[in-house]
Amino acid sequence: MKASRILVLIIALSAGGLAAWLNLSSGSREQPPTIVVQEQSIPSLEILVAGQDLKVGTSLTDGDLNWVNWPEDSVSDGAILRNSNPKADQEFLGQIVKSAMFSGEPIRAERLINTDKGFLAAILPRGKRAVAVSVDAVTTAGGFILPGDKVDILLSMRAQKRDEGYVSDTILENIKVLAIDTTTASENTEKAMSPDQTATLELLPHEAEVVARATQMGTLSLSLRSAADSKDGLKQPPRVKGGVKFVKFGIASQSVNGN
């Protein structure tokens, strides 16, 4: 009797062990569910970008422009599309870079100049003249005048009566500095004046005559204007013959003949 009970117990334990083994074996063979991620296709357009960093004043050559895919939703107005102008990468070769662009940056036609003229002549507004004057750090706000700044032009000269010494007055106001030596505002705005350099000024024709005569009469100095005070649209002085017309806020106040 006791032996039969032991036998039944052994059979039961064996059956239980076999069932557990079969359960574990079937579970190990089950594979984890496969997660399928469906890639979403983002609509894109081919646009023209800079193939490398482009400096101001350089002419575009082979390798400077590339076509790349760009997300359609991110294409800004003014970008050059391949489907509308497929030969743009060749048509723009030889044009001059008007403002610096970095590698991969979308090309915009308004940032290029299509001309066979020099860079400064190309960016000079219609009706304006570029006049270079020799200046030094002493006569240019301590050398802190930069291309793109607005200045007043001062003339210092000996008074008509020698016993009165020298006099100074403003002959032109709110004049834009186009360049310091060969550095323009677009190219490098961190280069300030250093001794014995040349400032190129943007002038109207009659202002150019005033400056030319003033350089023969005395010493020119540039007075830096505040950014808040450098506004366009100030009245310009009338053309003056036989002398230099001093102008303040567009009002002629004094004339010196330089005798």
Rank of each mutant, 00 (worst) to 15 (best):
M1I: 03
A3E: 14
S4A: 13
I6G: 10
V8T: 12
L9E: 03
I10L: 15
I11Q: 10
I11V: 12
A12G: 02
L13F: 10
L13Q: 00
S14L: 15
A15Y: 01
G16D: 06
G17D: 01
L18C: 13
A20R: 01
N23F: 04
E30H: 01
I35E: 12
V37A: 04
V37D: 08
Q40E: 14
S44N: 14
I47T: 08
I47H: 04
L48N: 03
A50L: 11
Q52F: 01
K55D: 09
T58F: 01
T61P: 00
D62K: 14
L65R: 02
N66T: 05
N66R: 13
N69W: 01
W70V: 05
P71Y: 02
D73C: 02
S74T: 03
S74G: 02
A79E: 02
N83K: 01
P86E: 05
Q90M: 03
L93S: 00
I96Q: 15
A100R: 14
F102E: 12
F102D: 05
E105D: 03
E105W: 00
P106M: 07
I113C: 08
I113F: 10
D116C: 06
D116F: 09
D116A: 13
K117P: 04
G118A: 13
G118R: 06
L120G: 04
A122Y: 09
R126H: 13
G127S: 07
K128Q: 13
K128T: 07
V131C: 04
A132I: 04
A132R: 15
V135E: 10
V135R: 02
T139S: 09
T140C: 14
F144K: 09
L146V: 11
L146D: 06
P147K: 08
V151F: 12
D152F: 04
L155H: 03
M157R: 15
R162Y: 00
R162K: 10
D163C: 01
D163E: 14
E164I: 12
Y166K: 12
Y166H: 05
V167H: 11
S168I: 10
D169Q: 14
T170D: 03
I171N: 09
I171F: 03
L172R: 10
L172A: 11
E173P: 08
I175D: 12
I180M: 02
T182L: 05
T182R: 06
S186K: 01
S186C: 00
T189W: 01
T200N: 03
E202L: 14
A208C: 06
E209N: 12
V210N: 13
V211M: 02
A212V: 02
A212F: 02
A214Y: 01
M217T: 01
L220F: 10
S221L: 07
L222A: 05
L222V: 08
L222N: 09
S223H: 07
R225S: 04
A228W: 02
D229H: 00
D229I: 10
S230P: 09
D232Q: 08
L234A: 09
L234S: 09
K235W: 00
Q236H: 05
R239L: 12
V240M: 15
G242I: 08
G243F: 08
V244F: 11
F249H: 09
I251P: 00
A252D: 10
S253E: 06
S253M: 03
S255K: 00
V256Q: 00
V256H: 00
N257A: 10
